[in-house]
Write a protein that binds this DNA or RNA. Sequence first.
DNA 1: CGATAATATGAATATCATTATATATAAAGG
DNA 2: CCTTTATATATAATGATATTCATATTATCG
Lengths: 113, 113
Amino acid sequence: METTIKMFKALSDETRLRIFLLLIQSEELCVCELVNILNMEQSRISHSIRILREADLIVNRREGRWIIYSINREIKNNEIIHGLKNEVKLPEQDLENFAKCKKKNIREKFKCN
Amino acid sequence: METTIKMFKALSDETRLRIFLLLIQSEELCVCELVNILNMEQSRISHSIRILREADLIVNRREGRWIIYSINREIKNNEIIHGLKNEVKLPEQDLENFAKCKKKNIREKFKCN
DNA sequence: CGATAATATGAATATCATTATATATAAAGG
DNA sequence: CCTTTATATATAATGATATTCATATTATCG
């Protein structure tokens, strides 16, 4: 129950829900990609990510200069998350920006933004 | 997306989640039964109920002096709610109090509390 | 109709959450 | 090593939420 409440709390904010859905879409993303896609302040993304991480919804690993986030495998068979995947779609704009961002391949270049 | 966020927000509070799960268990309950089961201030229950209602999670009808709440049928095939049912159990204490309350049959008597 | 019961609502307060700005840290490049 | 880049965190301002106490509303009973 406590875990579920934490999960609901983490996902009951638009910014965080969009980040979470983007991570479901894309397997993994770094912060500067999320900044790029969502067009928000970096500190806002970082802060949002922290709350998702603290709710055990996402995990991260470092890869050189980047810290790369992905969905926590352990919640992949949580039925609420399953339901969420089927019930909610990302805004079109986010999908577009996500595609553009992937094309840019910003992590290959020297400079991200 | 907006609907889902409203839903998550409504269910991300312990009081409201317990009320919601009790209503799933029991088909329908009036406020004084919930006060009885959860052992909380009546106004707290009423306020919580309002938020669940505004998120379209529950509905109500009047029956004499009582206002009786139940799960909104329209969300019964929402996959997130399905997931929730399977993932979360009510605290034992609530189940006990629920059973006791049903035995008391308070709506049959003149006075509820 | 007056009293009581069930529930809702309002106001006040306390707590918590969100966002922006500024700063810190850690890795990599030259 | 000094700079730049990516990210995190601290701080502060603002806004939202939860809870309680007091009061209002609506229905029933006598």
